[in-house]
Design a binder for these strands. Sequence first.
DNA 1: CACTGGGATCTACTCGAGTCAACAAAAAGC
DNA 2: GCTTTTTGTTGACTCGAGTAGATCCCAGTG
Lengths: 342, 342
Amino acid sequence: MITMTSSAVHTPRGPVTRKDVARYAGVSTAVVSYVVNGGPKKVAPATEAKVQDAIRILGYRPNAAARALKMGSNQTLGLVIPDSSNPFWALLGHAVEVAAAERGYALLLTNSDNKLESERRHIRNLAARQVDGVVLASVMFEPDLLELVGAEIPSVLLNHASIAPGFNSVGVDLEAGARLAVEHLIGHGHTNIGLAMGITADNEADGREEGWRRALEAAGLPVGPLARGGFDRPGGYAAGQQLLAADNRPTAIFASSDMQAIGVLRAIREAGLSVPEDIAVASFDGSVEAEYSWPALTTVEQPVWEMAEAAVSALVGENRNEPPQHRVFPTQLRIRQSCGCP
Amino acid sequence: MITMTSSAVHTPRGPVTRKDVARYAGVSTAVVSYVVNGGPKKVAPATEAKVQDAIRILGYRPNAAARALKMGSNQTLGLVIPDSSNPFWALLGHAVEVAAAERGYALLLTNSDNKLESERRHIRNLAARQVDGVVLASVMFEPDLLELVGAEIPSVLLNHASIAPGFNSVGVDLEAGARLAVEHLIGHGHTNIGLAMGITADNEADGREEGWRRALEAAGLPVGPLARGGFDRPGGYAAGQQLLAADNRPTAIFASSDMQAIGVLRAIREAGLSVPEDIAVASFDGSVEAEYSWPALTTVEQPVWEMAEAAVSALVGENRNEPPQHRVFPTQLRIRQSCGCP
DNA sequence: CACTGGGATCTACTCGAGTCAACAAAAAGC
DNA sequence: GCTTTTTGTTGACTCGAGTAGATCCCAGTG
């Protein structure tokens, strides 16, 4: 065996690099790379063993930044959601993470806290970090995408019906979903159905409002009272109180998110009324919360896992450079007790 | 103005680099760096303006990988949590993200799905990516930290009472918190208090079980029935059913997490009993869910934001190389209705 | 015995940005 | 008017890994 200065071998100050491994194994740096990546050139079994040993003994870890620089990709995606404390977004984040991980990508998660300024900042940050793709669940109906375009980063708009030209999008048919729920409430005999609607940063009405309206019109019913608030529990609570205080208090309420519905339930309880006897409730999202609330919520379920899968697959792999796609997933009404079903 | 080949200026194929900016502005690459980073050397105002213009016009974005390579840091932290669909972890993730962002760090979020193998894989992956620090909320009582040690990555164990030598940790006093809740139930006159306890991957009992036991002993009460299940809603539901079926059915139940408690509530309702009249409930975590459940849960609140702040600050900044700290935060009993209070 | 073929390995350049030593030019001092 | 200082700018080297092209060596062939 070749003698070496013990300082070089036993006390590799700082992180171990490819060079250290090469020296220790008595080969060139190229061979180390070939062994680590299994290519692009063959390495003799004996040499490979030497290198593997050296790697193990020295505790070598390839520098990800260097690889990213050379390869032009850091195998990372960015996700921007309004608020990961909202179970629906939390689940979606989870699903996107899994879909990304399956393809060897890690996920940078950012919360915009429902604030436009914050969303912009995060997008800028992700662009600066040159992630390989961004999944954006915007607080806006018409998100600001200039930064992403400028950085030439593939992006997917999530849960958006708006079709931004040149951008991929995946979402559900909000209008059809809402209609499903409202029609179900109508089926229970309700004629005065209110809407607790969430608000986006740019105050654009989304398909859920339209669906509610359409369902009522189609059934020849008058449009019930409408209250706006955040998509979260407090927002639903406030909207619920508003609806209960309306002149024509509705006998059923459709909420634009499960979280809102949970706030609505609270408002109803505090008013001394009960669900579904006095007021029936249905909502949108299909999060786990809905199943365990009291009473369990009848809700329009979004295929979160499929959506996450579609979003990620549009960003990576062979689809990267294909023309942008707009995938709209169908929703499904999950019937539980809050609507009046047994 | 100097004439240039239009191809170089107007059609910068591929991403724009520092060199392109330098050429366009008619300066050296060093100056571009100085302008971008505001140092380390001064640049004449006129030159700076030229460079800024060039940057704007060409749409230059510094390559993060190159910077990371040179600087030895990618300004990124990793977070490993059991399950971001669990609102407590979701909130914690959110808090860690904010704390990291405040210091200019981005957050790689990973879910271990309560599986040890998955946790290991994520840790290995984060180590390979050479994040600047890892916040680990392990599924294990005694997590496997070799990978992190080997990669010399600063780490913080989260929500862990176990004091792993050489590692930072931040958590709450589980035992004291549990005692708080159980003592409160005792104060309501209950003498048979059951426990719905979560299970970790290595089946180690944590402080919450001990706190429950101690509180009962201190009051001279017999130890009530105990059921184990996951920390999530289904786990609590199962544990709740078990407790209700016990010979000595408890009149009060302490659950080791809010999610479990929500499952317990469901089990109780399905048994035709009501909370808190027939059975009182208290739990641990202090998540938003607890506030909006029915009835609202009396719960032991963890100072999530402070914990996240402490975890991140132990990883970055001047604390990086200080001896590991073990910060234990106090909990606070948030009294609502599930315990029997009005 | 010289000669080719091919497998194994090495040398050297590249990715893009940070920054220091060296240098030029302008300002200040005497 | 000639040094000194200051200010502004630059060339060149560095970080660590991927890999094309050159080189080396040995078995097999004519």
